[in-house]
Every structure is written in structure tokens, then in C-alpha cells.
Simulated assay, not measured.
Amino acid sequence: MSAIQLMVDEHKNIKRMLGVIRKYCFKVLKNEDVDYKDFYKIIDFVRNYADKHHHGKEEDYLFNRMIEEIKGPAEKLVRQGMLVEHDFGRLYMQNLEKALIAFEKGEEEAKLDIIANAIGYTDLLYRHIEKEDDVVYKFAERSLSKETLEQLDADCEKVEEEAKEKGIQDKYLNLINELESKI
């Protein structure tokens, strides 16, 4: 499988978690029974699967190669677009974690920040994924040399194998299934 197709497939998993996040937030909004500890599981997924595992491949391999080989338009797209959005996603997760801690300390109003940051993240990521799938990845496939794409495939396959040995993919796909079963 090509690295680009792998990243598109990972986006499908991430979008499943975005659906979970939205449903959890709706339960909070309706004041339904919610296991707030599940939000920590969501943060773990975002930080370790969506960000470290998936964004790691983009940032360490794909985006760097786009900047080096394509230059101008790729550099602007990556540095002023994709990387900025990755950082906004990280900020949403930091703020979500702070809100959860405040809620655990009895600050009922922190529910607003839980919903705001979780929904902000989902909105950002849905749009981000659409841009990557429809624009960035296709631009990379059209513009990078065959050799660069082959090296990208090899590098990402190595990352996947190392992650598989650690059980990363199974852990986080099982987590999605677990949380989907609760909503």
C-alpha cells in the first residue's frame, strides 16, 4: 500500500473518533450520564494515534519532502496551512485536558470548555482531513518524483511495522470500537 493511501485510511479511523467526540459532547450538553474519564481516552487517541502516529508520518516524511522537492507552493501550503492546523489541534487537546481537570475539581462551568475544545477540534480536523485528502495528498502524488514517493512508501512502511510491534494500531482501533459501543 502506498504511504498516501495509508494516510487516507488513517483519516477514516480519525473521523470515526471525531464522530465519537461529537456524540460525547452532545451527551454532556443534554446533561446525560457521561463517563468523563473517556475524554482522557479520547485525548490519548488524539495525541498518540492522530498526532504522533499519523501526523508524525506527515511531518517527518511527506511534508518535509514536499518542501524540499516542490519548494514554493508546497512550503506555503505546509508551513502556513497544515502545520498550523496540527498545532491548533494540539492546543485544543491541551485546553480540553485543562477543562477536564477543572471539572473534576468541581467547576461545573468547565463543561462549556470541554464541549468548546472538543467540538473545536472535531471541526478543525474534519476540514483539515478534507484538505489533505482532496488537495495536499493529490498535489504530492502529482508533484513528487517517483523515487521520492517510493522512499516515502518505504519510510512509512517502516513506521507502520514499528508501531505494529508496539500494538499501536490495534490499541487505538480497539479504543474507537469501545467508545463507539458506549454512545
Rank of each mutant, 00 (worst) to 15 (best):
I115H: 11
L144G: 03
E68Q: 15
Y137W: 04
A50I: 01
E161F: 03
E97F: 03
V34H: 02
N174F: 13
D44V: 01
K27M: 06
T122K: 02
L179E: 06
D60R: 09
H53W: 14
A102K: 14
E161W: 00
C156D: 13
D9I: 05
E109W: 14
R47M: 15
M17G: 04
I14F: 02
V8R: 15
L112D: 09
F63Y: 15
A3I: 08
K37Q: 11
K158A: 14
A116T: 05
C25V: 01
K98V: 05
Q80F: 15
E178G: 04
L144A: 04
E75C: 07
R79P: 11
R90Q: 13
E58C: 09
L18M: 07
E162A: 09
Y126L: 09
D123V: 09
L144V: 02
Y24D: 00
E69W: 12
G19P: 13
Q151R: 15
Y137F: 15
K41L: 14
H53C: 13
R22L: 01
Y24N: 01
E75I: 04
H54D: 08
N177S: 11
I176A: 07
D155I: 09
E108K: 11
A116L: 10
K52F: 12
D35F: 01
A163F: 12
G56Y: 14
K57T: 01
L100A: 08
Y40S: 12
K98L: 11
R16M: 03
V28K: 02
N31M: 09
E180F: 02
L91Q: 12
H128W: 07
A99W: 02
M7Q: 13
S2R: 06
I176D: 04
L91N: 11
I115T: 05
Y36A: 10
T148K: 07
R47A: 15
E58S: 09
D33E: 12
E109P: 00
D113N: 13
E178L: 15
K111W: 00
R16A: 04
I14D: 01
V135D: 08
I114Q: 03
G19K: 00
L112H: 03
S143F: 00
F139R: 00
T148F: 10
E180A: 02
Q80T: 12
E180P: 00
A3H: 06
L83T: 02
D155T: 08
A102L: 11
H86E: 12
